[in-house]
Simulated assay, not measured.
Amino acid sequence: MSWSKLKQQLEGFLSPALEGRVEYRAPGYRYLPDKSGICYISVDRRNILNMGDKTNTIRWYQTELEIKNDPDIRIPVSKEEIEAVRQAAKGPVPEDRLIIMARSRLSTEHAKELMSAQATLVKSNFIVVANKFLTTPIEESLESRDMVLNILALVDRRVGKKRILGMTEKMELKHPVVQYFYELRRGAL
């Protein structure tokens, strides 16, 4: 599918409150098959989904350690996860230390997911993900681990006010760019 047709279809799914504010842009085109172009999602004419832009207000992580040490990321630990650490420890471990160990495991997994998601943000992958978004149910896009699918679903008109307001807890574990679009959509309700 051509870029202009894909863009037209994506903008057709935008929430009415965000029409004219959110825009899909591709200022560069691919001339060589092995070279990817640039693609942005912009809000109010500012490029938001662009990892290379240092003036961007969204935080882009450089390492997994940076994610693990980010005080804004709060990872909840369930009793099952604490119990799994207890059984793996093979000996008596204080309860507070078990919680720290479980949170460390979860933060490592979370960091790997965020770094992987950041690495896929190039134009060719955006087009593949956008085509996938157009052919899959909106629920799958909301639950996906793919940041672009999450963003496209959050600005979609098929996601209503009640569902948006009920997602607050899930959004705490998402990448800052997904949180940005969540807050944008919540603010437009």
Rank of each mutant, 00 (worst) to 15 (best):
R25P: 02
A26P: 00
A26Q: 14
G28T: 06
G28A: 11
Y29I: 10
Y29D: 14
Y29T: 12
R30V: 03
R30I: 09
R30A: 15
Y31V: 06
Y31E: 09
Y31T: 10
Y31M: 06
L32I: 01
P33M: 01
P33R: 01
D34R: 00
D34V: 00
D34C: 05
D34P: 00
K35H: 12
S36W: 01
G37H: 05
G37V: 01
G37S: 12
I38C: 09
I38F: 08
Y40P: 00
Y40N: 00
S42P: 03
S42E: 15
V43L: 03
V43M: 07
V43N: 03
D44H: 07
D44N: 11
R45W: 08
R45P: 01
R46I: 11
R46V: 13
I48K: 01
I48T: 04
I48D: 03
M51K: 10
M51R: 11
D53N: 11
D53C: 02
D53Q: 06
T55F: 04
T55L: 08
N56W: 02
N56D: 06
T57K: 12
I58R: 07
I58T: 12
I58G: 08
R59G: 08
R59I: 13
W60M: 10
Y61R: 05
Y61A: 04
Y61H: 03
Q62T: 13
T63A: 08
T63D: 10
E64Y: 01
E64H: 04
L65P: 01
L65W: 11
I67F: 07
I67W: 05
I67Y: 02
I67A: 05
I67H: 04
K68L: 15
N69K: 15
N69Y: 10
N69P: 09
D70M: 04
D70Q: 04
D70Y: 00
P71N: 10
D72R: 10
I73K: 03
R74S: 10
R74Q: 14
R74Y: 08
P76Y: 07
S78K: 09
K79R: 14
K79C: 06
E80S: 11
E81C: 10
I82Q: 07
I82E: 12
E83P: 03
R86T: 04
A88K: 14
A88D: 10
